[in-house]
């Protein structure tokens, strides 16, 4: 099966975790990756620049109405990020969800509705239960769920909450996740 998109949710300690995964990906990695990281409403996006330095694939903030293409997109601070059926991004300023804007659930649920079984959802380190409803929806729609091993995550709460709600397809260490992504997206493209 060919996966159309990968969504990743991460909160505290997220930058390090994302770096580890993204630095493993080769330049030809074709599947779009869409990230929600919990960040403060007043934060600038300097972390995107930091992330860009450790990874070959271009990383940018998702623009509203932009078409989802190859590359890594991150949700802008203070906006929810959603994916439309026509594979474009929408941004909203709706209330915070799980005290977060952007919220992982909002991205994951809309991505699940759009990509159905062709979606991979990944929950990484984090200190609240945002993303739990999102992975549930991904599973209901037939997608694949990967969760970082809570035992070795910087903050175990978010991955543990996801695991309590669904049976993930993979529970693994950060350095294995990049390899797995390469394996499943490559084998699907042959």
């Amino acid at each position: 099966m060919r996966y159309e998109a990968i969504v990743i949710g991460v909160s505290s300690g997220g930058l390090k975790a994302l770096r580890l995964i993204f630095s493993a990906l080769p330049s030809g990695f074709a599947t779009p990756i869409i990230v929600v990281q919990h960040i403060g409403p007043r934060s600038e996006n300097s972390w995107i620049k930091l992330l860009n330095e450790s990874c070959i694939i271009p990383i940018k903030e998702a623009d509203e109405k932009e078409k989802v293409a190859t590359g890594i997109y991150v949700a802008p601070s203070n906006y929810h990020l959603l994916i439309e059926k026509d594979r474009t991004f929408s941004l909203t300023v709706d209330e915070r969800v799980n005290f977060a804007r952007p919220s992982i659930d909002v991205l994951f649920e809309s991505a699940a509705e759009t990509y159905k079984e062709k979606l991979i959802g990944i929950i990484l380190t984090g200190a609240n239960n945002d993303g739990t409803k999102g992975v549930k929806r991904i599973k209901e729609c037939g997608g694949l769920v990967i969760v970082q091993n809570p035992a070795t995550a910087e903050s175990s709460y978010m991955p543990a909450s996801a695991i309590a709600a669904v049976q993930p397809d993979h529970i693994m260490e950060l350095d294995q996740i990049g390899q797995l992504l390469i394996k499943i997206t490559l084998s699907a493209n042959i």
Partner: peptide, 9 residues
Amino acid sequence: YSRAHIRRR
């Protein structure tokens, strides 16, 4: 309106 947003609401 953005359909993903409307659906969510």
